[in-house]
Amino acid sequence: MSAVATTRAVRLHAAGGTEGFRVEELPVPAPGPGEILIRQTVAGLNFLDIYHRRGLYPLPALPTVIGAEAAGVVEAVGADVTGLTPGDRIAWAGAPYGGYATHHLLPAWRALKLPDAVGDDMAAASLLRALTVEMLFTRVRPMQSGETVVVHAAAGGIGRMAIAHGRRLGLRMIGIAGGAEKAALARAAGADLVIDRRAEDPVAAVQAATGGGAHLVIDGIGGDMLARSFGMARRFGMVASLGEAAGRIPPVSVYDLGPARSIALARPSVIGFISDSDAYRSAGTAVIARMADGLVVPVGGRFPLDRIADAHDRLESGLGTGALLLDTGA
Rank of each mutant, 00 (worst) to 15 (best):
I263V: 15
R234S: 01
R261C: 05
A70N: 05
L257R: 09
T138P: 03
L105F: 10
A177F: 09
A309W: 11
D120Y: 09
R302N: 03
V65T: 15
L45R: 03
A208V: 00
V299K: 08
P142Q: 10
I263Q: 11
S253N: 13
G223D: 09
L12P: 12
K182H: 04
G72N: 07
G94A: 04
G55H: 08
A154M: 03
L105E: 10
A245D: 00
A204Y: 00
A309D: 15
L45G: 05
H215P: 08
S282N: 05
A123H: 07
G67L: 06
T132Q: 03
G247V: 00
V23Q: 08
R160P: 06
V252Q: 12
A227G: 14
E200L: 04
R234P: 00
P60I: 05
G222L: 07
P250W: 01
D310P: 07
E19W: 00
L257D: 08
L185H: 03
D121N: 13
G223F: 11
S2E: 14
D256M: 04
A188M: 11
A309H: 05
G213V: 07
F47N: 09
A246W: 00
F236K: 13
Y51G: 07
I36F: 03
F236D: 13
M291W: 07
L136K: 06
A311F: 07
S229N: 03
A283N: 01
V150F: 14
G179E: 05
L226D: 08
I249E: 00
D306R: 13
R139Q: 15
E25H: 13
F137R: 10
G243D: 02
Y97C: 02
G67R: 06
R302L: 03
G301D: 09
R248A: 15
L257I: 09
H104P: 01
M173A: 11
P304W: 04
I195H: 09
E200A: 11
A125G: 02
G44K: 11
A153L: 03
G211L: 02
D327F: 06
D224Y: 01
E316L: 06
L319M: 10
G294Q: 07
A68F: 12
A101F: 09
R139N: 12
P107E: 09
G98S: 11
G179W: 02
L48I: 15
A286I: 00
A95R: 15
D80H: 12
L295N: 01
G243R: 00
G223K: 11
A311P: 04
V296P: 02
A9C: 10
A204D: 04
D49T: 04
I50F: 06
F303V: 06
A3G: 14
